[in-house]
C-alpha cells in the first residue's frame, strides 16, 4: 500500500509540475522582412529580388528599408528558408540595422506565429550575443 501510495504521489506531483503553464519561449534564427520573404523564400537576406513589371530586379538592403518603413519583422527559425517564421510584436524600425543577423529572442507567444520579446540578443561580427534594446519591451 505504501509503495502504491508513494508512486501515486510521485506521479501526481510530476504531472502537476509539468503541466504548470509557462508562456516563455525562446526562438533563434535570422531576422527577416516578412513582406518580401512572404513573396519569395529566397528573400531571407538583406538584398531582395522584387518584381517590377515583368522583370525581377535586385533591391540592395531591401530588408533594412522595409523594417525602417515599419513592415513587421520576423525570426526565421534556425535561419533555414522554409522553416517557421515568428513575427516580432515590436516596432520594426528598431530592428532595421539588425536585419539578416542571427537573433535570439525570449518572450511570450500570445498569438500563433508571433513572439512578444522580453529579451532580444543579436550575434555580432565576433559571434558574440549582444543584448539590444527594443521599444516597448515587456
Amino acid at each position: 500500500m505504501k509503495t502504491i501510495f508513494s508512486l501515486m504521489l510521485a506521479a501526481f506531483l510530476f504531472v502537476g509540475f509539468t503541466s504548470e503553464k509557462t508562456n516563455q519561449v525562446t526562438v533563434k534564427g535570422k531576422l527577416i522582412d516578412t513582406k518580401c520573404y512572404g513573396m519569395m523564400h529566397d528573400n531571407h537576406t538583406n538584398d531582395h529580388m522584387v518584381k517590377k513589371g515583368d522583370k525581377m530586379m535586385k533591391m540592395p538592403s531591401c530588408a533594412t528599408a522595409c523594417a525602417g518603413m515599419g513592415i513587421p519583422v520576423g525570426v526565421l527559425e534556425d535561419s533555414k528558408p522554409g522553416n517557421d517564421v515568428h513575427v516580432v510584436i515590436a516596432p520594426a524600425g528598431t530592428f532595421a540595422e539588425h536585419m539578416d543577423k542571427e537573433v535570439r529572442i525570449t518572450g511570450e507567444a500570445p498569438y500563433a506565429g508571433s513572439i512578444m520579446p522580453g529579451k532580444v540578443e543579436v550575434k555580432n561580427d565576433k559571434g558574440k550575443w549582444v543584448e539590444v534594446e527594443v521599444a516597448g519591451m515587456m
Binding site: 516578412t34 513582406k35 512572404g38 517557421d84 517564421v85 513575427v87 498569438y111 500563433a112 506565429g113 508571433s114
Partner: peptide, 10 residues
C-alpha cells in the same frame, strides 16, 4: 489577404 502561417495574414 493571403495566409503567411496560421495567425499571420498578408
Amino acid at each position: 489577404g493571403t495566409v503567411r502561417s496560421t495567425g499571420v495574414l498578408i
